[in-house]
Amino acid sequence: MTSNHPAHLRSATVTIQRLAFNADACRACRACEMACALTREGAVGPSLARIRVAFDEFAPTAVVSARYCLQCSDAPCMDACPTEAMTRHPRTGAVMIDAELCIGCMRCAKACPWDIPQRHPDRRLATKCDLCSDLPEGPACVRYCPLAGEALAVEAVKGEVQS
């Protein structure tokens, strides 16, 4: 896919925060989903949550799994965005979506290897986890996880990003 970012940008190694999910420890209560939706949208519903937990008791393996943005250092979603609506938060390094600039084309989702960005059911714009970077207390999902630190945590990784 063609990059929309200028070719002259340089790479830099930075610290990026992201969610770390431990399927063995997760109890699949889905409190993270509800806290996310309540905090970001003021309502509860998995379609509003930026993290989704699945618990399939009939599956032979991996009965608990989670879908959320990994805040990739190479961030193909950012490259794919035609309006440069996606930027990194200066403190957390999370990929943010500027709702003023997003046009809802969902090229970010197509570029994402895991199809993470979702179309917001009301606003029709792309949404994804931004680690609640605007909240000093950190991601709501982690705060409300009954096993925070074991099942769900924030981890910092080194990544090479364009600057």
């Binding site: 309540l38 309502a43 519903g45 998995p46 379609s47 709501a140 409300y144």
Partner: peptide
Amino acid sequence: GTGRVRIAHPQRMLEAIQYVNQRIS
């Protein structure tokens, strides 16, 4: 169902959830 449940007082709800969680977890 792919809808949602609207919450009258989201912040107060979050505080109540945290309060109960701390006591039952």
